[in-house]
Measured scan of single mutants.
Amino acid sequence: DHIPWITAVLPTVIICVMVFCLILWKW
């Protein structure tokens, strides 16, 4: 059976995008 890697990667991607947007917003 396949491991849904997207389910494991998606939260990390969302957190990175939120942090990236927060850094851009504070500049």
Rank of each mutant, 00 (worst) to 15 (best):
V9W: 15
A8H: 05
I3E: 01
L22T: 12
P11C: 00
I23N: 03
I15N: 01
H2Q: 09
W25D: 04
I6L: 14
C16A: 10
T7K: 04
P4Y: 14
I15K: 01
K26V: 14
L10R: 07
W27Y: 14
L24G: 06
D1C: 05
L22C: 06
I15Q: 00
M18P: 08
H2L: 13
C16P: 03
I6M: 03
I23S: 05
I23K: 07
W25L: 10
H2F: 08
F20P: 11
H2P: 12
P4L: 14
V17R: 00
I3G: 11
V13R: 00
V17Y: 15
W5H: 06
A8V: 09
T7N: 06
V13Q: 03
D1R: 11
P4W: 02
T7R: 06
W27E: 03
W27T: 15
I6P: 13
V9L: 13
W5D: 03
C16Q: 09
I23V: 07
D1I: 08
T12P: 13
W25R: 10
M18N: 09
M18E: 05
V9R: 02
T12M: 13
V19E: 00
L22G: 10
A8Y: 04
C16I: 05
A8F: 10
C21E: 02
P4R: 12
A8S: 02
T7A: 13
V9A: 05
A8T: 11
W27C: 11
W5L: 12
T7G: 08
D1Y: 09
I15S: 11
M18Y: 15
V13G: 03
I6K: 02
V13E: 01
W5G: 06
T7L: 12
P11M: 13
A8K: 01
V17T: 07
L24D: 07
K26E: 09
T7M: 04
H2C: 09
C16F: 10
L24Y: 02
W5N: 13
D1T: 05
F20E: 00
L10P: 08
C16H: 10
V19S: 09
M18T: 12
W5F: 01
I15H: 00
L24A: 08
F20M: 00
I3S: 10
W27H: 04
V13H: 02
I15F: 02
L22M: 01
P11F: 15
F20G: 10
A8Q: 07
D1L: 12
D1G: 13
C16W: 04
T12W: 15
W27D: 06
P4N: 14
M18I: 09
I14T: 06
P4S: 10
H2D: 14
H2M: 14
W25M: 03
I15R: 00
V19A: 08
T7H: 09
P11Q: 05
W25G: 10
I15A: 03
V13L: 14
V17Q: 05
D1S: 07
W25T: 07
I3V: 06
P11E: 01
L22N: 02
V13T: 15
T12H: 08
W5S: 03
C16R: 00
W5V: 06
W25Y: 11
V19W: 02
A8D: 08
L10A: 13
V13Y: 02
F20H: 00
I6Y: 03
L22V: 11
I15D: 00
M18A: 10
W27M: 05
T12L: 14
P4T: 12
V9P: 06
T12Q: 08
V17D: 04
I6F: 02
L10S: 11
H2V: 15
C21G: 13
M18D: 00
K26Q: 11
W25H: 06
D1K: 08
H2E: 04
W27N: 08
A8C: 02
H2N: 13
P11Y: 11
I15T: 11
L10T: 12
V17E: 05
P11S: 11
W27S: 09
T7W: 06
C16Y: 01
T12C: 10
I14G: 12
W25I: 13
L24H: 13
I3N: 06
T12Y: 07
C21Y: 14
W27I: 05
T12K: 03
C21F: 11
W25F: 14
H2S: 12
P4D: 05
W27K: 04
T12F: 12
V17G: 12
F20I: 04
I6A: 08
F20W: 00
I3K: 05
H2K: 12
L24R: 13
K26A: 04
V17M: 08
T12G: 14
C16T: 14
P4V: 15
L22F: 14
K26D: 00
V19P: 08
C21S: 12
M18C: 09
C21P: 10
L24W: 03
T12D: 00
I6V: 13
C21Q: 09
T7P: 05
P11V: 14
W25E: 03
I3R: 13
V13N: 07
F20N: 00
I15P: 04
V9F: 02
D1M: 15
V17K: 05
I23A: 13
L24Q: 11
A8P: 15
W27L: 10
K26C: 11
I6R: 09
K26H: 05
D1E: 08
W5R: 06
I3A: 09
V19G: 04
F20V: 13
I14W: 11
I14Y: 15
T7D: 03
K26S: 12
A8G: 07
H2T: 12
V13S: 06
V19H: 00
W5K: 04
I23Y: 13
L24K: 13
K26R: 12
L24C: 07
F20D: 00
L22S: 11
I23T: 14
P11G: 12
F20L: 12
L22H: 07
V13W: 14
K26P: 09
T12S: 08
C21N: 05
